[in-house]
Design a protein around this nucleic acid. Structure first.
Lengths: 335, 335
DNA sequence: TTTAGCACTCTCCGAAGTTCAGTGCTAAAT
DNA sequence: ATTTAGCACTGAACTTCGGAGAGTGCTAAA
């Protein structure tokens, strides 16, 4: 893999990312200053194909990158694309509203990323197992309504207004909440859930009416819609590889299903990662690449983010944006 | 427009709704027991075309309904399709969780309707101008965090956690909230907004830091994402008239834009309405029909709902579902 | 080692022919 | 007067065929 092969590969992938058309030797010689003739490039391309970096859709077409080719491109060739001022500005301003609710951050981030990258983006909250109860309050709002406010040790607040199953006076509510906090503080939501489900500990019905509601809600038993946010799904329609409605259905279906959440949460390590085409071994996104990253909530608690696009994604640009956004998000979440 | 024409029109539209293919005289004679020969039906069809109820894509194809044809079908022919037990069940169970936040109801309703109808569905909260402030509380959550809780006269609760611009003790917070309530109770959010923007009243900066935040938030200045919920957009991909990605982009784009919200909020009167194809005079949805309905929040405050599908929508089924859901929603919101 | 030259391969495109569903019209039947 | 069978006609959709063109691999010369 000498320097020239490298340059040919880079030029070819750049061109294919820009045009979505198979790239021929003539095009490469003309548009990129490689200093050699098409014939030479043809030889290099044949070598690169033999090495598995390129593929030929059919004999008389140009070449397109293989997964392996993209992999080399991502790992060895590209370097971070510096953000322009507009992008930096957008990122800096994104979190200036003073809201402190996790789902707001998630929503905001997903939108920001999809607007900057022009690809669909999905942001997931840290899995429940990582969030720990700090305290719970019941705030009476009326004779039969109560506002439950839950704080986690990472400083986030979740709340929900509920109809009471029976009547409580303010004092009783406050005592109930204090007892709840005392009993459960420091437990992760997963432990809470296990405690509910563990047959030795007795089932949830052991707990008093209001506690039941609180536990169910806290452990996300009735719907975690807030825990993940998808933005810009329609961006996918702008790329010619998704002219086919069936493909669109598969990919957007994937993003709306649980699968996407599982997939994005699978990454253990920090930093920006790239998964290319068949590397994911998920049928629905065989034609896609994914850039994932993590952010931190409290220095330790991690949430996940992903950008999904065609295999010929603008890797450098997307990776830089994702990195900048997750850094900023981690920074503001540390306040 | 005698009885037989009517029956022919009904059969033809039924068939076209089911198959999405132009319908010929033979098909009608064979599949629907009209008791006459294809030749007779051909004559009727020619008449119906002359009357403007049918169209011919080209000379040697069958007929398809025109907007006028669908209009007659909807207004004069179809009768409500009774819901089956499963559907009734789903609707009854949809609101049994005891949450009392408007955006939860909206989200839940949109999902319910799109799952039952198999079309995309959009639900909008009552426009801000109809909601009136009942009271506001500031609940301290930490040294620099406060939970704002706003109740409307219609009994809904909205809340948001914010970082404080400066430090306040609990007492001061409570006083600020009480004063706010005293000053503004009964005003609609629109009045609040006008008061902020009215140059005679002075601009928002006249108000104290925390009030500023509260006003901005209450009047929805920083994002009304919660005020409208879209569910099941991908359902549209299942209908063959949306094989074309450009059409999909236009229609889903419409649903994601402000336009859809404006459109659905335009209906003044109660009950279920249908807009067919070009009747909407909105370019993006010329090929679609829309079923809209309203629900009531407090006996008087109205919100809107819509279902969007191809022109050959299953009108009877959708209208029945929409009616049942809005009734149920109005019922539970009256508690 | 590089390059020009050239035969070869395969897709894409348009023209021409064929098939087929469905029509409208006419004339016979009811 | 209405309905129906029969039939010629129409236009889309599909198939076939023959370039045209892009791009290749190979060979032989530079």
């Amino acid at each position: 893999m000498d320097g020239r092969k490298r340059r040919v590969l880079e030029a070819l992938i750049d061109d294919y990312i820009a045009t979505a058309e198979p790239v021929g030797s003539r095009t490469l010689a003309k548009k990129y200053g490689l200093g050699v003739s098409p014939a030479t490039i043809r030889n290099e391309m044949a070598d690169l194909e033999e090495l598995g970096f390129l593929e030929q859709p059919h004999t008389s077409a140009g070449r397109i990158p293989s997964d392996k080719g993209y992999r080399f491109y991502v790992d060895e060739i590209i370097r971070p694309a510096p953000l322009d001022d507009m992008q930096k500005e957008r990122i800096r301003h994104a979190y200036q509203v003073r809201v402190r609710e996790l789902h707001w951050f998630i929503h905001q981030t997903a939108r920001l990323v999809s607007e900057l990258t022009l690809y669909p983006s999905l942001v997931a909250a840290p899995p429940v197992k990582y969030t720990q109860l700090y305290d719970l309050s019941f705030i009476p709002l009326g004779r039969n309504t109560v506002l439950m406010v839950l704080r986690t040790t990472s400083g986030m607040v979740e709340n929900q207004t509920l109809l009471l199953p029976e009547e409580f006076d303010a004092e009783k509510l406050s005592r109930l909440a204090d007892d709840f906090t005392q009993e459960f503080r420091g437990l992760s939501m997963e432990d809470l859930k296990n405690r509910i489900l563990d047959p030795l500990q007795g089932d949830i019905s052991r707990y008093q009416g209001l506690w039941q509601l609180a536990l169910k809600w806290a452990t996300g038993q009735d719907g975690d819609e807030d825990k993940v946010s998808l933005a810009g799904p329609l961006n996918i329609l702008n790329y010619p590889e998704f002219r086919d409605v069936d493909k669109v259905r598969r990919v957007l279906g994937f993003l709306e299903k649980e699968t996407a959440l599982e997939f994005v949460s699978r990454t253990e390590s920090d930093g920006v990662h790239v998964v290319i085409g068949a590397e994911s071994s998920l049928d629905d996104i065989q034609d896609c690449s994914v850039v994932t990253a993590t952010y931190r909530l409290d220095g330790s608690v991690v949430g996940h983010l992903m950008v999904l696009g065609p295999r010929r994604m603008q890797y450098a640009r997307v990776m830089s944006i994702v990195e900048a956004v997750t850094n900023e998000l981690t920074r503001v979440l540390h306040g």
